[in-house]
Amino acid sequence: MDDAKIEKRVGVQATSDRLWELVSDLSRWNIWNPYETDVEGAIAFGGQLEMTEAFPGQPQRRVTARVAEWRPYVRLVWTENRGFLFRSLRYIDIEELDKGRCIVSSAHKFAGLRGELFHDKHRIALRDAHQAIVDRLKAEAEA
């Protein structure tokens, strides 16, 4: 499934605490994430997240996803079964190198035949969107 993965990473001059504060405050995602907005729900194992998704080249849609994994200050993972032969996994990772220096990642993984075809069709736009997400998260964390 690695062929159907898009991930962007950026170095951030901020603590993992600061980055997690931004990621875990779902009501404020609109500030740093222009593609997944109006986020509601609970970051908990098996928790549900609802958001408006509007990635470039795709129609805006309301998403209901399940929190698959989370670890405070480190990772948030959510999944969505998008229909027959189409599953997606999204994550934001925070890797603290030293106090006040981190790498943050934003990624999509697609599974199933339709998921892989979707990846192939939208790969470039999604790459650019994930770059914008990490760049804006960096700017907000360093502000």
Rank of each mutant, 00 (worst) to 15 (best):
A132F: 01
H122A: 06
R123T: 01
Q58I: 14
S106A: 09
Q131C: 03
A139P: 02
A132Y: 00
L126I: 07
R28G: 08
C102L: 05
K121Q: 07
Y73N: 12
L126M: 14
E80Q: 11
L137R: 02
S106T: 05
D38I: 05
R101I: 08
R82D: 06
W78S: 04
R66L: 07
F55D: 11
F45Q: 14
K121Y: 01
P56F: 05
W32G: 07
P59C: 10
C102G: 01
G100T: 02
V39I: 10
L117G: 00
R61N: 12
S27T: 10
G46Q: 08
Q131S: 06
N81S: 13
R82V: 03
P34Q: 06
F55Y: 15
L76W: 10
T79Y: 00
E7N: 05
A125C: 06
N33E: 02
D25I: 09
L76S: 13
E116P: 00
F118P: 03
T52Q: 14
W32M: 15
W29T: 13
Q60H: 01
E21Q: 15
K109R: 01
V12S: 14
P72D: 13
K138C: 03
G47Y: 06
M1C: 06
R82H: 01
V67S: 13
A54D: 09
R123A: 08
K109Q: 05
G46K: 09
K121C: 00
G57W: 02
I31V: 15
R127W: 11
A143H: 13
E21S: 13
V63D: 13
I43S: 11
Q131N: 04
V10I: 15
W78C: 05
V77H: 12
L89T: 12
D38C: 12
G47S: 05
H119P: 02
L137T: 02
S88N: 09
A111R: 04
Q60F: 07
G115P: 02
G83V: 07
L76E: 07
K99I: 05
A111H: 06
N30L: 07
S16Y: 02
L89F: 05
E50P: 03
L49E: 14
P72K: 13
V23S: 12
R61T: 14
R127I: 10
R66N: 09
R90G: 01
G57I: 08
T79Q: 11
A132S: 10
Y35C: 11
W78I: 02
I6L: 09
T52R: 10
H130V: 09
V134L: 10
L49A: 12
D135H: 15
A129L: 07
A132N: 10
F110R: 01
V67E: 13
G100V: 00
T79V: 13
M1S: 11
G115V: 07
R66E: 14
D25E: 09
D120C: 10
I103E: 14
G47A: 06
R123I: 01
R136M: 12
R90F: 08
R127T: 15
L19Q: 06
G11S: 14
S24Q: 09
D120P: 00
E80Y: 00
K109A: 04
L117C: 06
M1D: 04
A14T: 08
V74F: 03
K138S: 02
D2Q: 15
L26W: 05
A14H: 08
K138Y: 01
I94D: 00
E7T: 08
